[in-house]
Design a protein around this nucleic acid. Sequence first.
RNA 1: GGAGAAUUGUCCGAGUGGCUUAAGGAGCACGCUUGGAAAGCGUGUAUACGGGCAACCGUAUCGAGGGUUCGAAUCCCUCAUUCUCCUCCA
Length: 423
Amino acid sequence: MLDIKLIRTHFDEVKSKLETRGVNGEELDRLKELDENRRELIQKSEQLKKERNDVSDQIAQKKRNKENADDAIASMKKVGSEIKAIDNQLEDIEEQVKGIASGLPNLPHPSLPIGEDEESNEEIRRWGEVPEFAFEPKPHWDLGTDLNILDFERGAKVARSRFVYYRGLGARLERAIYNFMLDTHISEHGYEELIPPYLANDEALFGTGQFPKFKEDVFQVDGHPLTLIPTSEVPLTNFFKDEILDEKDLPKYFTALSPSFRSEAGSAGRDTRGLIRLHQFNKVEMVKFSKPEESYDELEKMTNNAEAILQKLGLPYRVVLLSTGDTGFAAAKTYDLEVWIPAQNTYREISSCSNTEAFQARRAMIRYRKEDGKIDYVHTLNGSGLAVGRTVAAIIENYQQEDGSIKIPDVLVPYMGGVTEIR
RNA sequence: GGAGAAUUGUCCGAGUGGCUUAAGGAGCACGCUUGGAAAGCGUGUAUACGGGCAACCGUAUCGAGGGUUCGAAUCCCUCAUUCUCCUCCA
C-alpha cells in the first residue's frame, strides 16, 4: 500500500511513476476525488460527534440534578441519525478508497530501468563458467527419471500434473541442499531460523500483497478462511504484523524452509516438464526488517547471501535488475538471480530478492519506535535463498556426466552421508 | 468436537448505563532532594485518523465486528484468541 498522504501531496509525480508500472492514471484521479470526499465527510461526522459528546454531558448533568432533559435528548436523537447517515456514506467511500489503493503496486526505485517487461531488465553481473560438455547435455527430467530419483508420472497419478515424487538419493539431495542453505544462512549470514505455519489467513496474505489482487494464484482451503502459502515470505513477514519494534532490534533477519504452493493459473504450456514450475516446491526464504535508511544496503547484502549459496555450489549464474514493468507488485526494487540451465542453453530464475520499502509494512502495520520516540514503518525485504527444486534441477544438469550420472558438489557431500555421485 | 471461565493502557489491575477527560499500583522518562545512590516528592508516559506552519485542537479505540441508547469498558448478538475439564489424536 502506498502512503495516501504522499499520493495527496505529490500526486503528479506518483501518477507518472505508477504509469511506468502499467497503472491506469484514471484510477488515481478517482482515488484523489474519493480522498477529498472522504476528508470532508470525516470533518462533518467528527463535528457532529463533538456536539453529541458535549450535549450528552449536559444531559448527564441535568439527570443528576433531577432536571428535565427531554429537549436535548430529542435533538440529539436527530444528530445521532445524521451521524449514522454520514458514517454509512463514509464507510462506503473508504471501501472504494481501499479497493483502489490496495490494488496499486509499489513505486519503482529510481535506479530501475524503465520498460514494459523482462526485455528491459538489466544484467548486473555474471559469476562462474558455463560448463562445456563433450556430449549433448540432457534435461534434468530425463536424467532424474532415468536415475530413478524423480518420478513425475506418479506425482501426477496421486495429485495431478506439476507434482513430483523425489526418490532415494533424489530425496536425499533435496534434503541435503536445504539443510546446507539453512546452515549457511544461520551460521554465516546472521539469520534466525523459523518453521512457520504453511497456511495463512486473508489478513496475512493482504499484508504481503498477495491479496486482494492475486487470489487466483493461490490454493485456498475449501470451507476455511485459510490459504496454502505461495511463499514463506507470507508467514515470515507477517511475524511482526501489528507490532511496534524497537529501533535497537533492527535489522532483524529470518530464514525458513517451507513448501510453496502455487496454482500456476495462466502458465499453461510453460515449463510443463521437470522441476522448474510445480504446484508445490520447497524454498528457503530470507526476510529482513530494516530501518528505512539502511534498506538498500540490506538488499545488496541479501542478494549476496543468495549468491553465496550458488557460488558454494559452483553453479554459474547472473544477477539481473528487473525493469519497472517486470518488478513484482509489492517490490520497489528486485534483483533476480538466474542460474545456468544447460539443456535449455539459458539462465533461469532461481532467486528473487526485493526491497518492498514500507509497502508491506503499511499493509501489515509493522512499525518501529525510533530513539527519539517517534514511530515509523520498517522496510521489509524478502528473497529466495534459494528455490530448492530449481537448485536440484541446476545441479543435475550442470553436474551431469556423459554416462548419465550426477556428480555431487563438494559442499553437499557431507550432507549426503559421503555420497559423491548418483548413478 | 462438548462444557465452563477469561480478554481493560508498556505491565498488573479496579470498573454492571452519565462527576471515568479509564481508579489504583508497577515500570519507564525528566525534574526536585543527595557528596553519590536508594527512598521520598513532583511532572510526564498509547495508537490511528482529521484540522493546523506550529503550539495544539477534535474524533475514534477497553480482544474483533455488529446492535440497543440522547449517551456503552459496562446491556444484547456474532466471531476470534487464551485457560480449565471431558473427548480425540501425533
